[in-house]
Design a binder for these strands. Structure first.
Lengths: 256, 256
DNA sequence: CGAGAAATTGAGTCTCTTCAAACCCCGTGG
DNA sequence: CCACGGGGTTTGAAGAGACTCAATTTCTCG
């Protein structure tokens, strides 16, 4: 199953036909190397980007020269539905690792939306999950630092797992540097490092080469006070221990 | 002109017919008194709420007992399009002042969306502006405290002005307590108060009775480093001095 | 094996928080 | 018409958390 469909169907039910239609508009894949911008700030994109592999982020350079990461983007994510709706982008999208991406022209999205309202609904839903994640990040979610860091690790794991790219006992497939975390959390690199050290000390996480490894998922979610509901995956997210499963599966079929 | 249309047309062009259709689904108005919830956390609303008068906020109570304000809602705002898309709400909506509101059943929104794709587009756009505001709030936008506080004041003014509810030289029509600001900014009440005091000292803002008064808009935007572009109003927002006007007016008509 | 990137550690400083008390404005009731 | 009460605002002081600066260590990749 195509990674884009894995993501979309994890959020909303789509018919076979809708799935085929969505795939049909996908352009050829393209490689982007780490550190380069996929879409630049202030531009008015004509295409939407779909992540196929690798990790990226939507970010904004702030006046004081610091990078402010708004969200991470993983395979299956449509980084730029935002620009389809907004036209004018107020942030950039950059590759955090070597990535491969595909594009969809905005006209084709509009055509899809007209023909398949349910698909438009899925797209809308996708952008709203993004908003929900933003909410959760904003103001650090009222959590204290150790919680916040742990929470972000949980989020990343669940999102990757939802598209079949992560599983427990295995290191996360992508490299995110501590600087990336720091810029996403709004903390200094030093402090982020010290906080991660605490989680390592507790034997909740570790490193396997350059990659991050979750050693004790239960423990991590507990420290983080993590509830995957805000990610709005149909199956509730949250890995083996399905704690909060199927919260909204009842409504998942209906459009309203 | 109805307040809802003022808001929607400030974001996107709508035909006469679309405007009529949008108004037609509005339920009767209802009063909500200050401090009560309009929609509660964890619920699955069947209606979308339109603010007619007063100020409200989407908020979440955090484990540690603090209130975390996600966005302010002013007249014309549709607080709950979020729930139309998400079904299951992960935050509450509460009245910050006495409010009057109207509701629209979700089925009617779905019907509207089917019949008037351009209207659905406007709705989508509305929710995305919300997301954009979230982005701007997240992590304090990388600003330092005085900037942040000033920035929030600017945002509130521009949003109210866009629907014709605020003008310079006049106090803002609603009372927002410093606690409200603090909870939205993620700062302590004490610190918020001290920061506002700085802005007063500089003679940028003042108080007129219980209401806030902007004394020097130019100065305030300068301190805040404020650029209204992220609010995505067609006219660029930003009051008399139209600094960043019409950024995307060219594309505003087209759906794609 | 060496170079560069990333992570770690320590020390000093400043911001923001918490706790606590006083103040002010405004509506109410005597 | 004035005293009272309460919500909201202001102020002060002490302490915790986070930041910066700077040096060191570890890791990875060529």
């Amino acid at each position: 199953m195509h990674i884009l469909l894995k993501k979309l169907t994890a959020l909303h039910n789509l018919s076979e036909e809708e799935q085929r239609a969505a795939l049909a508009v996908l352009g050829p894949s393209r490689e982007v190397s780490r550190g380069t911008d996929i879409v630049s700030d202030g531009s008015t994109p004509t295409h939407t980007t779909v992540m196929l592999a690798g990790s990226a982020c939507r970010y904004k350079m702030m006046p004081r020269g610091n990078r402010h990461i708004l969200t991470f983007q993983f395979p299956g994510d449509m980084t730029d539905l935002y620009s389809y709706v907004m036209k004018h982008l107020d942030h950039a999208v950059g590759a955090l690792s070597d990535c491969s991406i595909a594009q969809i022209p905005h006209e084709k999205i509009a055509a899809l939306c007209d023909e398949y309202p349910n698909l438009q609904y899925a797209f809308w839903r996708d952008t709203m999950v993004d908003a929900s994640i933003s909410h959760s990040w904003a103001l650090g979610g009222g959590r204290k630092t150790v919680e916040r860091v742990a929470h972000m690790l949980c989020e990343i794991f669940v999102r990757l797992e939802a598209v079949g790219l992560a599983e427990l006992e295995r290191p996360l497939p992508y490299v995110l540097t501590q600087k990336d975390f720091a810029d996403a959390l709004g903390l200094s690199l030093v402090h982020t490092s010290k906080t991660l050290a605490i989680l390592k000390q507790k034997n909740l996480i570790g490193r396997s080469g350059t990659k991050l490894l979750i050693i004790n998922w239960e423990g991590l979610t507990e420290v983080a006070n993590f509830d995957a509901a805000y990610l709005h995956f149909k199956n509730g997210g949250g890995s083996p221990s399905q704690k909060h499963g199927a919260v909204e599966s009842g409504a998942a079929n209906a459009r309203c």
